[in-house]
């Protein structure tokens, strides 16, 4: 059931969707977007890849086990919440770095929290989609 049209389309659509998901992630803390939507778009890109090239190829492209991504994302999110606790502020206080980076803009723990959400959402969606596609 390999389709040359679909695989050619996916070859340029896949990096484009991943790029757009990172764009949504980085913009999330002060505009429309965020880790959740970005993670969903990234998971959709991998689902498209799995449809075009098969589930084993999608697993190889993902690199790590999708369940590792879930725990890694939760760890990053909790870590971003614990960061201000060490300087005596309440849990999950937003701490921003003073200098702004040229591309990212303001960088701080809310962005780190969004990265955690992104990883967790990609992990959960890939676990669900790849398991269902293997049936």
């Amino acid at each position: 059931m390999f389709s040359i049209i679909l695989s050619t389309a996916v070859r340029y659509l896949f990096p484009l969707m991943l790029l757009f998901s990172v764009f949504l992630l980085l913009r999330g803390h002060n505009d429309a977007g965020g880790g959740f939507v970005g993670g969903l778009v990234a998971a959709a890109a991998f689902a498209l890849y799995a449809i075009a090239y098969g589930v084993p190829a999608a697993r190889r492209t993902l690199g790590v086990d999708s369940r590792v991504l879930i725990s890694l994302g939760l760890l990053v999110a909790v870590g971003s919440g614990l960061w201000p606790v060490f300087s005596g502020q309440p849990f999950l206080t937003g701490v921003w770095a003073k200098p702004t980076l040229p591309v990212l803009g303001k960088v701080g723990t809310p962005l780190l929290f969004d990265v955690g959400v992104y990883l967790a959402v990609v992990g959960v969606m890939m676990t669900i989609i790849l398991t269902l596609a293997e049936e």
């Binding site: 059931m1 679909l6 659509l13 969707m17 757009f20 949504l24 505009d31 429309a32 977007g33 939507v37 778009v41 959709a44 689902a47 498209l48 449809i51």
Partner: peptide, 27 residues
Amino acid sequence: PALLDVAIVLALLSFLGTIAFARYLER
């Protein structure tokens, strides 16, 4: 202009939906 992002996401996902339907029909 923020609404255009919604249109982009909808474009990507509706394409994915049609592909999944086509795969189901072929099978």
